[in-house]
């Protein structure tokens, strides 16, 4: 486990922002932190980043309580992107890399490599205000990952990217995971969760309402619906009767129609999200 959050609570002037939340992100995996607006995701991320401190509970890094020095092993990209508008792209990336403890020469080499990868080399000496929004986002991403942190925290990484650039970003995130980084990312974009997250935690009203592996969760939320295709080209959904197994159902349906295909329909993460948030709101 690269990072473990244990029973963390945080209160702000009368309202609870994080209520007994625990989660753990293993090395080389992507972990989704989901939840509606105002659920407490950013508060939790700020606690992990040591921008604020938890009222109770602890954050462990490789099993040890985190210290201020550990912060440089985190790369954090906040939801509200921010860079110095009047600073040159290169100076900006170097400044942030050096603040995180990189040597000037190493930082420069790493920066050139990343700029190349994102096709931004010719923009190195331009001021940030001259860049398009998408390009500025890429610069933000580079300055987050340049010091090769073992833990990456992305708050809504795909917002503001067009599909082409979103794919480039996804490719890079997966590459970082394959190189062993633990990645925690919060998002509202459920299709990206299905695509790249192995595990998720869903927070609502400061509490964990759902936690586990994405595939298992989808199994857990399945409504036992089959999509059936018949020989005459028709297809329809069939809900299993109570007590009926899938095997029985297919056998029965096959007698009635001539089946050419069938598939169990798993709920999308979107549906899982909406359903769990709604039901936790009623509690």
């Amino acid at each position: 486990m690269y990072i473990e959050v244990k029973d963390v609570c945080k209160q702000y002037a009368g309202h609870v922002a994080v209520d007994h939340v625990s989660l753990s992100v293993p090395d080389g995996s992507i972990y989704g932190l989901l939840g509606p607006n105002g659920a407490g995701k950013t508060s939790l991320i700020r606690i992990i980043n040591r921008i604020t401190h938890a009222d109770s509970g602890e954050v462990l890094m490789h099993g040890q309580p985190m210290t201020d020095d550990d912060v440089r092993r985190i790369g954090y990209m906040p939801e509200e992107r921010g860079l110095y508008k009047k600073m040159k792209v290169g100076d900006q990336i170097l400044y942030l890399a050096r603040l995180r403890g990189m040597k000037a020469r190493d930082a420069e080499a790493a920066m050139d490599e990343w700029l190349e990868r994102f096709e931004l080399t010719e923009w190195k000496n331009k001021k940030l205000e001259q860049l398009s929004k998408g390009m500025a986002q890429k610069v933000q991403f580079i300055s987050t990952v340049i010091h090769r942190p073992p833990l990456l925290i992305f708050d809504e990484p795909f917002s503001g990217f067009d599909p082409v650039n979103a794919d480039i970003l996804k490719r890079e995130i997966l590459r970082l995971r394959d190189e062993g980084a633990a990645i925690l990312f919060s998002t509202h974009n459920m299709s990206s969760v299905e695509e790249i997250c192995e595990q998720i935690t869903l927070i609502n009203h400061a509490k964990v309402v759902l936690q586990g592996e994405v595939n298992q969760i989808r199994q857990q939320f399945k409504k036992n619906i089959l999509e059936v295709t018949t020989a005459d080209g028709q297809s329809f959904n069939y809900s299993l009767q109570e007590g009926e197994t899938m095997h029985d159902a297919i056998a029965r349906l096959n007698e009635e129609y001539q089946l050419t295909g069938f598939r169990e329909i798993l709920p999308s993460m979107h549906e899982v999200f909406v359903e769990s948030v709604k039901s936790s709101n009623y509690e």
């Binding site: 954090y76 906040p78 509200e80 921010g82 860079l83 110095y84 942030l96 995180r100």
Partner: peptide, 16 residues
């Protein structure tokens, strides 16, 4: 300026 740019959040995650 740093606050409206939101860069402050990135910076304070690297220093006090």
């Amino acid at each position: 300026e740093e606050k409206t740019n939101r860069i402050v959040e990135v910076i304070v995650s690297t220093c006090k």
